[in-house]
Amino acid sequence: MTLEELLKAQGLSDEQIKAITASMKENKIYTASEENLDIRYGKLKTDYDTLNTQHGESTKLIEQLKKDAKNDEALQGKITAYETQVANLQKELDETRLESAIKVALMNAKTDDVGYMAFKLKEGGALELDEDGNIKGIDEKISNLKTQFPTHFDSENNPGPREIDPKPLPEGDHNNDVQPKNLADALRMQYEDNEK
């Protein structure tokens, strides 16, 4: 159920609902279908900021070392090592940004399994970020996922979380069952049961 539907069910008019949602946007109050989205986003932002800070510090250190040791081979080796480290940190930062963008896009698309849909999204080909930090062609890619896996996304036909059909255990006295001690015991017991 959306916020608008909830407010309408409480007896508010369309004008009042529009005023409330407009006021929420002005005050930067947003709703999301995912639980603890602000905590998840905060963690991703903290990770991103940490990597960005480390990258900036490494770059400053490299520049300082270059100035201090123009002819010293040992220091030149360290500089090369630090430059490699900076390149690796930059690559890690880019990967973190891409992963964050994938997860945010899938959460906004209201999927019930972000991890699996991210895996399927990556299977579809290489993903790249644009200058604004958004994945290029993400709308089309998510649309394709919705076509392939409609039960994993909220829609008019699939309005919310899926019902899980629990399977009951077979009837019988399970208290007297002998528990296997190891894998060999389990296999032997399975073989004996099949022979009966």
Rank of each mutant, 00 (worst) to 15 (best):
E123C: 12
K67N: 06
A118M: 14
E99M: 11
D154V: 08
K91C: 01
T96R: 12
V178H: 01
I142A: 06
E195W: 10
D173K: 00
L145C: 07
K110H: 12
Y191H: 11
F119L: 15
Q179R: 06
T84A: 12
T80D: 08
L169V: 13
K146H: 01
E92A: 10
T147F: 02
Q64N: 04
V178K: 09
D72A: 07
M107R: 14
S100V: 06
A118T: 08
A105Y: 00
P166Q: 07
E83L: 05
G160E: 10
N144V: 11
N182R: 00
P180A: 03
K181Q: 10
Y82D: 05
D173W: 00
N182C: 07
N108W: 03
R188H: 05
I102D: 07
Q148F: 09
R162G: 12
L169E: 12
K141P: 03
L61R: 09
D68R: 06
Q85P: 04
Q76E: 06
R162H: 13
N158W: 03
E92R: 10
A101R: 04
P161A: 11
A186D: 04
G137V: 04
K136R: 08
T151M: 14
D185Y: 06
K60Q: 06
D72Q: 08
A101M: 05
Y116Q: 09
S58R: 15
A109I: 14
A69Y: 15
A109G: 14
Q190E: 03
N175G: 14
A105W: 01
L75W: 15
T59G: 03
D132Y: 01
T84M: 12
E57K: 15
Q85L: 13
Q90D: 10
I164G: 07
I142T: 02
K110Q: 15
K103F: 14
G124M: 15
E92M: 06
E63G: 06
N134M: 09
D130S: 05
R188L: 12
G172C: 10
P159I: 04
T84D: 07
E131K: 02
Q179S: 04
E131P: 01
R162V: 15
H152Q: 09
